[in-house]
Design a protein around this nucleic acid. Sequence first.
DNA 1: TCTGGGGTCCTAGGACCC
DNA 2: TCTGGGGTCCTAGGACCC
Length: 423
Amino acid sequence: MKKVFALVDCNNFYVSCERLFRPELIGCPVVVLSNNDGCIIARSNEAKELGIAMGTPFFKIQSLIKRHKIKVFSSNYALYGDLSNRVMDILQKWEPEVEIYSIDEAFMTLPPSRVCSLTEYAQQLKNRVLQCVGIPVSVGIASTKTLAKIANRIAKKNGYYKGVFDLTDNENIDTALQATRVEDVWGIGRRYAQKLNNHGIYDALQLKGVNDKWVRKHLTISGLRTVMELRGISCIVSDNSQSHRKSIVSSRSFGREVSSSADLKEAISSYASIAAQKLRSQKLAAGFIHVFLTTNQFKGDQPQYSKSMMVSLPQPSSYTPTIIKSALHGLDQIYKDGYHYKKAGVMLTGISSGKHKQLSLFGSAIKESNCLMNAVDYINSKWGRNTMQSASAGFAKPWSMQQSFKSPSYTTSWQELPLVKAS
DNA sequence: TCTGGGGTCCTAGGACCC
DNA sequence: TCTGGGGTCCTAGGACCC
């Protein structure tokens, strides 16, 4: 029997998280900003209706914000991450096969036999999530993940379906595909959409019928997989192997432009610490450290410079002092005086399980204290990030990002618990 | 004044080897 | 005038995702 996939997607997830603790904002236009309060990364339906596009720079829509009294939030990842975990818990209790795809989406494999219809089954799940966590979700059901994405889009856009749309019925598929533009197909981005349009292909039904050879040549093997999925042949398999991630990045745009080597060293130390902590939290170690910095590409009148460099470690490590030291060594090599830098970062690669370390050929293992890192991680998890930190990361942090509109961490910080007053 | 961060996969091309 | 072919590894860059 053919597999059936359900894509469960939280509606306007970050906005829904903010509204959960500010119910008076239901029905009002709300937006959430990227780090550094740079771009719009989430919009309520009311904000979408005002024509605010995803990724719009915040500073460009100031007057619109004022005119329509749009409520603005800086991103609060502690809150979103916690609520995401709660939603995923419900899904995992509901069905054994759940693939968490992103902070606000998961693919579920539905059982072949059940007492009610697929639509009723998904409605029950949707109600359960709303009841237990308070986050509204939409569910798209189909025989492949790409079709489930399309079904989900229809469930969201068309109120008639009440948040659930079943596309397993073959008769509906082509109608749905015809109503879907190629750029709205999962796996087709701006560039590929342009290419397809130039070739006379505008909707998903046309894409489904394109010659395989042409697709393979112009959209690579990934594009061909997308087309096969539109045809109902499931070929985007879930990666349920216990494989760990291949890279870990920590980077930020600065709150203001940075020129001095001293400030950059602080920032790089800080990012290196964050990356090392992420490594340890997944019990991994890294073999290579990449450091990069770049000037503000939006300022065409200023001299531009960007550079990256890789530093190899003698043996894989997750020890913060080692990671910081190597990152600063890399920074020394690429830093050039006289530029206004906008962004810098640290990327860790050559990632392996921390248990099996390849030791250096000469001499014994380098001394790194796991106990010390365990203690630091424990203290920071209990009392908040940066309760203990490396001195090289600085204290005033004049380069740190702006977050002017951040809501409290309602669910993850004792100090920020919401208060309820009886009157 | 103000334009995110963190990932993955694929391909082309160069270096190098036999 | 003539100057191989094929495999592998690495890196940079492009494209996509949320």
